[in-house]
Design a protein around this nucleic acid. Structure first.
Lengths: 289, 289
DNA sequence: GTCGAGCTTAAGCTCTCCTGATGCTCGCCG
DNA sequence: CGGCGAGCATCAGGAGAGCTTAAGCTCGAC
């Protein structure tokens, strides 16, 4: 019988590309991952990995098996979720990932809602950039996460994950009325590697220029303070700009940010995950959108 | 992560009812099965088995998990089948179960067909009564089996198995023209515990009497020889009665026997299984039906 | 009341699997 | 062209999972 643990490693390899990266993701040594994949290959009776130079790539058979691995692991998630449901109402630890703005604006009311409805549930929040969410969910470090996606930035598609849209909000530009007008201004963006950074760069590129980035600030309150101090222009989402400081004007752009809940495919039936998503929806109805 | 090996044991328990029977099926000791199921229960966090007296029954949560186990194991079968397909054409050992008449009439041409088309395939035949086929398939002792089912005998429904109809044939009665006419005759049936035995009894009961069974003979050639010797009446299927001996007349009854191919759900995509079923179909077109 | 079927628990042993160390290949770069 | 580091495989060793044997417990049948 094929071992789902090995199938999981194969799926991670398909996502991450190197055995070393897989090992880091599952906190094994590369040696262990290599041995497990070799054993899987032996059982499969067909080469799954091609040793090309100092790296490995999946063979067609390997990619085929990844798809089946996905189906198997998804069924296992469903089984786990069913067991959690059989245990009764939502209870126990629930690891939630959230990007900073959500953590500040959406989570407080959502957590109040959640704790009120399900006292046995113990939500644990981790701030995490949406770009890192897929890996954390797949690795089992998170159960559910709040992520966002922007126009211009292609949404992360991961066959092992499922998303549920929560809401959409417009983006604002500080102290200018259009992106083209801000062409020669210094820019304040998030730190490189985050989704917000990519969004700002792409938005400027779409307007026909490469932004001159002077400051890298992730916290939008700080961003607005910098903007008020004349340090540059920035793109901020509606929820982060409910109370702009003196000296900052905001212009709505034809650019939206969508917030979604993400979880492992099949795990959405877990009662705790269902409860969390329901609490997100409930909290959203009370947001000033 | 839930362990499919444990899930398999739970599914077997749902089918067989006792831990001892599961242990025998998988050639473990009852102790090992008990420990595995206890571990599964611990991981599940909810009681799966109820110790009632000296036996165990599944709790509702246990039955729920069995359904999910079924889905998981089916996906694993699919993955195995896909790997076998990736290995190339059908090759290697293929364990085939067949009831005696099929082994004699259908298998020789089917095996010739199969070996001609796929020389690398090594079919291994085991004679087995259809009543035992489910267990052997689930336990992985067989890859594909020829089974039959009769009117009056409810077909075995096993969620983990899949069947494909092959053909249907009429049943004949020896030396009488209707079952009612044979009410007071001694009967020749198969040995108790087989499907054919159950069929004969049920057919007589449907005609309103309990047959007086004198001989228990499984081989239909011998049955016909006994009938020719005036030792009693018997029900024989068309394919077993192509050349009745002197002294035996046959009367077709409104009673049919259907022959099917059976295999583990999801495993029908295995190239060797596909090839075998195709060979069965090809051989059937040349049968005198 | 006795026996036996069925399940569990405890002890021991085997085998799997992970770690750490070593060695290899290959791409990069001076 | 040679050194270096990234990436992977292999080997030896230790810890843990899992099976077997043996013993004990419970309950139903006779």
């Amino acid at each position: 019988m094929l071992d789902p643990r090995k199938l999981h490693l194969l799926r991670e390899l398909a996502q991450r590309g190197t055995i070393a990266a897989v090992a880091e993701a599952v906190t094994f040594t590369p040696s262990a991952v290599s041995q497990q994949l070799s054993a899987l290959e032996r059982e499969a009776g067909v080469p799954l990995l091609e040793r090309t130079g100092r790296t490995v790539t999946l063979t067609p058979a390997g990619r085929l098996l990844v798809e089946h691995a996905q189906a198997v692991l998804e069924q296992l998630e469903r089984a786990s979720a069913a067991l959690a449901a059989a245990r009764g109402g939502p209870s126990g630890p629930l690891r939630v990932g959230a990007f900073p703005t959500a953590a500040r604006v959406l989570l407080p009311p959502a957590l109040a809602e959640l704790s009120g409805a399900h006292p046995a549930l113990e939500p644990m929040i981790s701030e995490i950039d949406p770009a890192d969410v897929s890996a954390a969910l797949r690795a089992g470090e998170l159960d559910v996460a709040l992520v966002h996606e922007y126009d211009f930035v292609p949404p992360v598609t991961d066959a092992s994950l499922e998303t549920e849209p929560l809401f959409s909000e417009p983006m604002y530009l500080t102290n200018r009325t259009s992106i083209g007008e801000a062409r020669d201004e210094p820019w304040i963006t998030s730190t490189p590697g985050t989704l917000c950074y990519a969004m700002a760069i792409r938005a400027c590129q779409a307007a026909g220029f490469e932004p001159r980035v002077r400051h890298h600030i992730d916290d939008y309150d700080t961003v607005l303070a910098f903007a008020a101090a004349g340090q540059g222009v920035a793109l901020v989402p509606h929820l982060a700009a409910l109370a702009p400081p003196q000296g900052v004007t905001l212009a709505a752009l034809p650019l939206n940010r969508r917030t979604l809940a993400a979880f492992r495919r099949g795990y959405g039936e877990h009662p705790a995950v269902r409860a969390a998503v329901a609490a997100f929806h409930a909290a959203i109805t009370r947001l000033p959108l």
